[in-house]
Design a binder for these strands. Structure first.
Lengths: 243, 243
DNA sequence: CAAGTATATGAATCCCGCT
DNA sequence: GAGCGGGATTCATATACTT
């Protein structure tokens, strides 16, 4: 039987209400607060303007919480990851997505929150826009950290140093920054078998889908009503197929 | 005809003596000052102790300049990259290698020196040791920056967002941290055709080899007598075969 | 000579025990 | 109690070697 909960509301507020030591792993993809070179671009554009090419035809809704500058992002993310630290059990892992621009500030935030930084796992997207006069931006980055020392005996896995997968397209794509299932299926293995995974920025719920599909439990938080509904549908359908 | 110079001595000292605006690109692989979880390990151990596996049989010599902590590394690298900035022409690119732990401090240093950060290109090494209970450390990172705006018309290339290649082995390997030729051959294309490439940490000279082999000129600096000699031999042999 | 087999090893890290 | 050294770990790949 699948086991999941999805809270709708602000991540920082709701994290305070959850019990200490109640999750085995935290895997999340926060709003990057990136995408614009200038502060004005970052705060004025909608998320669609920043992350979706002008010629894209699909019509996915914007998401909130994407208007912070780097200092604000550091302060906010430190608080969020500090709460996640409290909720995680000793030795539990954290995986957090970041684009290239947010890798330094994200590494600062997770360390400020008490996590021990363990490494970077690039996520390679084979389908990426070419860039004239320079390097294609084909990767995002997953920062890996642990609460204290690695508990290799509890979860003796050998995971790859690089994950590959293209973003879902067409019907399958429910969120602007949705992660491919095969990528999440690799990453979820960092959580001990049958453990509970927390994702305070659930979005369309790809982390939860991977957790349930692999026999793990899931606790999610999502601010947007619309995406919370999308995530509930996806999670419920896993429950059905896995039962 | 190949065109190269190799200065033997301290990078920071010698960079001051080179003329402003004299190079088209800076591509370098500094000592990472990494390796080891504790400050003592990082600053006291030799490069062999830090970077060479306990069961390795090769006898490559240590290299110097790898004993700084993060603050020292930031200060020193900012000065070095500031001089590189002076030497680069307007619009010229910088590529600098870093391991996962040094990505944030390296991005700080290059921006402190005036460069505009443009992205990260992961270098994937398929041959990497597995890690129990976590992710294999299979990547190093190339940080890409420019002096001012990207000059895409001068060098209208389309470069990959990820490079792959295994370290040279056996006879071909002359340095503990030698980069594979196929990786350098990709990266060198960021320099305008027939331009001049600067590498203030030449090591065994892989950057120079890629530059000369692709019809570019090369200016190198190397502290160690021993590696300067190795680099001179490699560069001279390219000169012969390319002539 | 092609194909299959054996071997070496990596910009480590963790754990343990001694100083 | 912190610092330090020694030993085990274990997979993808290049290379050498054998059939």
């Amino acid at each position: 039987m699948s086991d999941w909960t999805l809270h709708r509301g602000d991540a920082l507020t709701l994290l305070h209400t959850l019990p200490t030591g109640s999750v085995d792993a935290v895997i999340t993809d926060p709003p990057y607060n990136s995408g614009g070179m200038t502060a004005t671009q970052r705060t004025n554009d909608t998320t669609r303007g920043k992350y979706v090419s002008g010629d894209a035809k699909h019509a996915l809704p914007d998401f909130d919480g994407d208007t912070r500058d780097q200092r604000g992002y550091l302060a906010w993310m430190s608080l969020v990851l500090g709460q996640c630290y409290r909720l995680a059990r000793e030795g539990g892992p954290l995986l957090i997505f970041a684009d290239w621009r947010q890798v330094p500030v994200t590494s600062d935030a997770l360390q400020a929150a008490g996590w021990t930084w363990r490494g970077i796992v690039p996520w390679h997207k084979p389908i990426a826009r070419p860039a004239k006069g320079g390097f294609r931006r084909a990767c995002e980055y997953v920062l890996w950290a642990t609460k204290g020392s690695v508990d290799a005996n509890r979860n003796p896995v050998y995971l790859p140093g690089l994950v590959t997968g293209s973003q879902p397209r067409g019907e399958k794509r429910q969120h602007i920054t949705q992660k491919p299932d095969e990528v999440m299926a690799e990453l979820i293995r960092i959580c001990a078998p049958e453990g509970t995974v927390l994702d305070p920025f659930t979005g369309s719920g790809s982390t939860g889908v991977a957790a349930l599909a692999s026999g793990r439990a899931f606790v999610g938080i999502e601010l947007s009503d619309r995406y919370a509904t999308v995530a509930r549908h996806r999670l419920a359908s896993i429950q059905t197929t896995a039962a």
